[in-house]
Structures are given as structure tokens and as C-alpha cells.
């Protein structure tokens, strides 16, 4: 059985001076998209970073097991903190391609252009010559996605990837993520504070609070009939927004 892209997190503990994540367990099946939701301090980002082995300084994994089958890559809320400000974005993607595929520099450059096109960046050849600060927020997030794809991942870890984006750009990036996921059969672990975004991307949801799992289940079930009072309070706190009349769909 092909288990490529699967993830098992078992009794994960993350600590600084004190323990911050208190035994979180979750799984992602091959090709599945799972969301982690919670408020600030819930441990959702720490859990994701522990899976990637990218915990902040002074924070470490103090217990439990993380097992990724295949390659994992990660995208972040703020691409600028991850991109090299002094290197053209095409070169940055090519370098990751070269490292991942052990190909020639020329083949890596060609591959980088393909990847920039695959994240639907218009005029990728021109854009590849630019520096990160010359791109819009949405373009930078697409470059970050290209960098992640350059690593040929089976599992994509997403840490609030659309939180800093405008709502129309968020929609584009979420659509892109869905397309890439289908094309490449990616598994996804998606962290967000936004329940609506998570239910749009993910089939299953894990609700965290104070470093513990409060509830886990099918995304639609969790938001329409939450099992815990805490999840219900999160759902109830989402401000409603009516859909305008006379849209293109009706």
C-alpha cells in the first residue's frame, strides 16, 4: 500500500521553559488535507513547526513521535521572512531545484521557470529576474509555493499562508492550492485561525486549545455540529456575512 505523504504525530510534546504542547496526536492520510485551528497560544503553529523540525530558538520537542512518509515542505504566513532579499526569486527557486534534484544548473533554471509557471505567476520569466521586495504579497506567496514544490514534497505544511493576504488574493491562492493538491496528490496539514478558510481547504479538522486537542473530526461536522463547547464558541464567534443577491451562480 502506498503511504507516501502520510503523517503520524503521536503524543507530541513541545517545551520552552515550560511545556507548551501537551501530547498532541493527529494523522494525515496520503492525499488528505487536515486543518489545525485554534486561537493564539493554542500551540497550532508549534505543532506544525515541530513536524517540520523548524521550532523557534529556545523551543524544543520534548516528547512524542513524528513520522512523515516521504518529503515535507512548508509555506509560511510571511514569505519575506523566508525569502533571501538579496537574490532574484528565479535563482532562489533554481537553487532549491538543484539541491533537491541534483541536476545541472541549467536544468535547474529551466525547472525553476516551470515551477513559477505552475503556481500561475503571469510572465514567469520576467518575474524570475525580480527581487522579493519587487513582488506583491500574493506573488511572494506563490514564489514560496514554488520553492516548496521544488522540493518535490509529498506533504505540504501550511502555516497561515493566506492570513496576510487581501481577500481576493487569498481566494486565488486557496484555489491554486486546491489545483496543485489535485495535480500532485499532495497531503496537506494546514494551520489557520480562520475556521472558514480551513473548512474550504480541508476534509478533516483538529481543534487545539492551550496545547491540547479539544476535538477532531470531519470539517463539515466540526463546524456544523461541534462536539465541544469550546469549538462551539469558536464557531459562534465567526461573524456572519450574507452572500450578495444576484451572483453569477443564480
Amino acid at each position: 500500500m502506498n503511504t507516501l505523504g502520510s503523517l503520524v504525530v503521536d503524543d507530541l510534546r513541545v517545551s520552552a521553559d515550560v511545556e507548551l504542547v501537551h501530547g498532541v496526536s493527529l494523522t494525515v492520510a496520503p492525499g488528505e488535507a487536515v486543518g489545525i485551528v485554534g486561537e493564539s497560544g493554542s500551540g497550532k503553529s508549534l505543532t506544525l513547526r515541530a513536524v517540520m523540525g523548524l521550532l523557534p530558538r529556545g523551543v524544543h520537542r520534548s516528547g512524542g513521535r513524528v513520522q512523515v512518509d516521504g518529503t515535507a515542505a512548508m509555506i509560511f504566513q510571511d514569505p519575506l521572512s523566508f525569502l533571501d532579499p538579496l537574490a532574484r526569486v528565479g535563482r532562489q527557486v533554481a537553487e532549491v531545484c538543484a539541491a533537491a534534484g541534483r541536476t545541472s544548473p541549467r536544468a535547474a533554471r529551466v525547472r525553476a521557470l516551470e515551477l513559477l509557471e505552475s503556481v500561475r505567476l503571469p510572465d514567469a520569466a520576467d518575474l524570475a529576474r525580480r527581487y522579493p521586495h519587487q513582488l506583491s504579497g500574493g506573488q511572494r506567496q506563490r514564489v514560496l509555493l514554488a520553492l516548496a514544490l521544488a522540493q518535490e514534497p509529498d506533504l505540504l505544511l501550511c502555516d497561515e499562508p493566506t492570513t496576510a493576504l487581501d481577500v481576493t488574493v487569498q481566494r486565488e491562492v486557496l484555489d491554486l492550492l486546491a489545483q496543485l493538491r489535485a495535480e500532485r496528490r499532495l497531503s496537506i496539514l494546514f494551520v489557520s485561525h480562520d475556521l472558514a478558510v480551513v473548512t474550504q481547504v480541508c476534509e478533516r479538522v483538529v481543534v487545539l486549545r492551550g496545547g491540547r486537542v479539544v476535538e477532531t473530526g470531519a470539517a463539515l461536522d466540526v463546524v456544523t455540529s461541534p462536539a465541544s463547547d469550546y469549538t462551539r464558541s469558536l464557531v459562534d464567534a465567526v461573524l456572519p456575512l450574507p452572500v450578495p443577491a444576484g451572483g453569477g451562480d443564480d
Partner: peptide, 23 residues
């Protein structure tokens, strides 16, 4: 505004917002 946005861009903004299912 929320029922009948007058400008296409207003409508695009309103329609781009992810909604929670069942709300």
C-alpha cells in the same frame, strides 16, 4: 451594500470571503 453591491469590485470582494458552511 451587502445585499446589492453597486460596484463589480464590491461584489468581487464580498464573494471572495470564505464562508463557514451552514452559517
Amino acid at each position: 451594500f451587502f445585499r446589492h453591491p453597486g460596484h463589480p469590485y464590491s461584489r468581487a470582494l464580498l464573494e471572495a470571503v470564505p464562508r463557514l458552511p451552514g452559517r
